[in-house]
Nucleic acid binder design. Structure first.
Lengths: 213, 213
DNA sequence: CAGCATCCGCTTTGATACTG
DNA sequence: CAGTATCAAAGCGGATGCTG
């Protein structure tokens, strides 16, 4: 990216990560950890392959990403955030919180990937952390996800589980709105939610306090 | 900006403010409040005038900026953030904190505007808020600034004051590093700082705790 | 002068095809 | 799988011109 040429912290930050797609590459690596090139392409629907290669080079040059040659059985290069790259998490968080308002507009033709759930759901907390942890099976998007509470926090990770406390499926917007408490069960079902299991565990999930300023 | 077409809060946010210059326009309006077109141009050195007009249209369409027809004596249109636009402050904060690391590299040919001081200095707090407030006259960049403590917080605003507790001048990087406690007086003087007044008041300025995550 | 709009050369992006 | 190559279209930067 062409530098803004301004002696200002915001402008200098954007000199490094202000290019189109750059912050979304960081999003992928933050949410999924080390990724192969193909994984990144899959998590960034719409990106041209040459642009992904360009951005990875740029981000590597900017000290955000490192290339790791993974030994067998992976036997390919992995891309991973550097510590400096991981420090972008608050930027992505702030953008995600601001952009959450825009998720009310329906999905339309937008692409969706299940692992993107980690962002909105990671803002939730378990209001009863002393009770046994919750495990919820969520099926929306390209792969099944497990949403679970750990030490009062909520995590989402790919996978399936034998006997979840609840199992959800349906359109991503409905699933997220329901888990975040923005839709009650009846309203969510009207918007396509399929629900099985213990309704009470959902109410344990509560939005985290907002970022300070 | 062309939409990323992803049902993800970060991508949707970037659909609105991810264009080149967009977040810097927001920076200007956040730091200076309502601005005339010409003020924005001055605060955004390097922007092409048609691009500024474009961005203002885009941001208006995105609900970030409003156009206000100010009555005489101003008698021109002012641009101002909407409440929704002001909610971008945490995003700019996070970017500014991340980008602060990049300010160690010297200014070089980068442009500088005095009002950009509000960002790095706004992260400082007054460690002795019960003592009388501090007033510091700072001369660096295009206009004199007053740095003062109000209720334990530090503010920077344009202006001059009769009898400040201290008066500083020199290159912007040196002034900021000194005020943030990253350079001591001797080191700062070696890097071009000119200082008059009470050295003790500077030590009352302390970095705020970082954003939570 | 403030507030744009137009034009033009250049760079970046996006889509597709191709290669080790 | 992990990219590179190619090319048309869009976006950007700079200069300049127009209007109240």
């Amino acid at each position: 990216m062409r530098s803004y040429g301004q002696y200002c912290a915001v402008a200098r930050a954007l000199d490094v990560v202000g290019d189109r797609w750059s912050l979304l590459v960081v999003r992928e690596l933050l949410m999924r950890g080390a990724c192969r090139y193909t994984d990144l392409r899959h998590g960034l629907p719409g990106i041209a392959t040459n642009l992904l290669a360009d951005r990875l080079r740029d981000l590597e040059g900017g000290g955000i990403v490192t290339r790791v040659d993974a030994p067998p059985p992976i036997a390919t290069t992995l891309y991973e955030l550097t510590p400096r790259g991981s420090e972008l998490a608050p930027v992505l968080d702030a953008l995600g919180i601001w952009g959450a308002e825009l998720m009310a507009q329906p999905q339309g033709t937008d692409e969706f990937r299940s692992h993107w759930l980690a962002f909105p759901l990671g803002r939730l907390t378990d209001s009863a952390p002393d009770l046994p942890p919750i495990t919820i099976q969520v099926r929306t998007g390209d792969q099944p996800m497990i949403v679970e509470t750990v030490d009062g926090r909520v995590r989402a990770r790919p996978g399936t589980v034998e006997h979840p406390d609840a199992a959800l499926a349906g359109p991503p917007g409905t699933v997220v709105a329901f888990l975040r408490g923005r839709l009650d069960l009846a309203g969510a079902k009207r918007r396509g939610l399929r629900f099985e299991g213990n309704k009470a565990v959902i109410t344990r999930l509560q939005p985290a306090r907002s970022l300070n300023r």
